[in-house]
């Protein structure tokens, strides 16, 4: 294989079909070694389908896919030996204890028992579950199960860790703890692929990301680049009285580079939100509430697809 790139994962026209339905529609991307790479997209965008192909859990329908320089069609065993996988739906072994989950999983990788015990202890410390080592898995909280799944994914010291919605369903505290652990993991040199439909998560964790929608990639870049490219520096969010909704035509014209009408809010995209707000007041437009904030990936997504990310 030519040393074409130092990408850990490379996809060309990657496609996944379930019978007639196309879940991933000819996408191209490259995940560089080191750092973390995000797949941001709404429900059904095709994130999990893509992750499962990378993890050799689901056959590629067509197109080219290389993972750590190998082909999932022929080298699945070798690839899987070097991957860590955190699936969207937990698949911890409910009949084993916390520690047994790690040690047994290590045995599946042919890791000797003594090494498995050692690594299990370190990883339980790392995800702050050492006190629960002897407990059954079932009564753990959602966040603890997620942390255990991450610890399990690290048992074979993988070069590449795939995390499919690592924090969905967790409360903010549990999410922040997880983010912090993932950040540590990245600093140790692992490459992470993270899917999420939380834009704050993507902004926090991802060095680069692709935005997926309806089986396709609609944009790619660092969070900063995407925001610069597809949005303005600031956003003025207005809540206007319902009665005015219909009669607002033209009232706001010229106050911003772009205006988005959402069911509950109106968004004015501009590099200077405060000035836009002053102008709104100057025109004596009645406003229930107003907020000036920086642009986020949410705005990028809205711009690209005309829809909000989390319905």
């Amino acid at each position: 294989m030519p040393a074409a790139s130092d990408a850990l994962v490379r996809a060309r026209s990657l496609t996944k079909r379930f019978n007639a339905f196309t879940a991933v529609d000819g996408i191209d991307f490259e995940v560089p070694a080191g750092g973390s790479f995000g797949f941001l997209g709404p429900n059904g965008a095709g994130k999990t389908s893509t992750m499962r192909m990378i993890a050799c859990a689901s056959p590629v329908t067509s197109g080219e896919l290389r993972v750590i320089g190998m082909d999932p069609r022929t080298d699945a065993r070798e690839i899987k030996a070097r991957l860590g996988v955190v699936p969207q739906i937990d698949n911890l072994d409910q009949e084993l204890t916390v520690r047994e989950n790690l040690e047994m999983y290590a045995r599946y990788f042919d890791i000797p028992a003594a090494v498995a015990r050692q690594r299990a202890s370190e990883l339980l410390e790392f995800v702050q579950l050492a006190e629960r080592a002897k407990d059954q898995v079932e009564p753990l909280s959602g966040g603890m199960k997620r942390r255990l799944t991450i610890a399990r994914a690290l048992i074979n010291e993988p070069e590449l860790v795939i995390l499919d919605e690592p924090t969905t369903g967790l409360d903010p505290q549990a999410r922040h703890l997880l983010w912090e652990r993932l950040y540590q993991l990245k600093r140790r040199g692992a490459t992470l692929i993270i899917t999420t439909h939380y834009m704050d998560e993507a902004e926090q964790l991802c060095d680069r990301l692709v935005v997926m929608d309806k089986a396709r990639i609609v944009a790619e870049g660092s969070p900063r680049q995407l925001i610069d490219q597809y949005s303005t520096r600031e956003v003025l969010e207005l809540r206007l009285p319902d009665a005015d909704r219909g009669r607002r035509n033209g009232q706001l014209d010229g106050l911003a580079d772009r205006i988005e009408e959402l069911p509950d809010r109106t968004l004015l995209y501009t590099d200077d939100g405060e000035r836009a707000l002053d102008a709104v007041h100057a025109r004596q437009i009645p406003v229930e509430s107003a907020l000036v904030r920086r642009s986020s990936l949410e705005d990028v997504f809205l711009r690209l697809t005309g829809r909000t990310l989390v319905e």
Partner: peptide, 14 residues
């Protein structure tokens, strides 16, 4: 339900 095989198959097991 428990997805044990899915977990096993994400290791070198087939």
């Amino acid at each position: 339900w428990g997805r044990n095989y899915e977990a096993m198959l994400s290791t070198p097991l087939g």
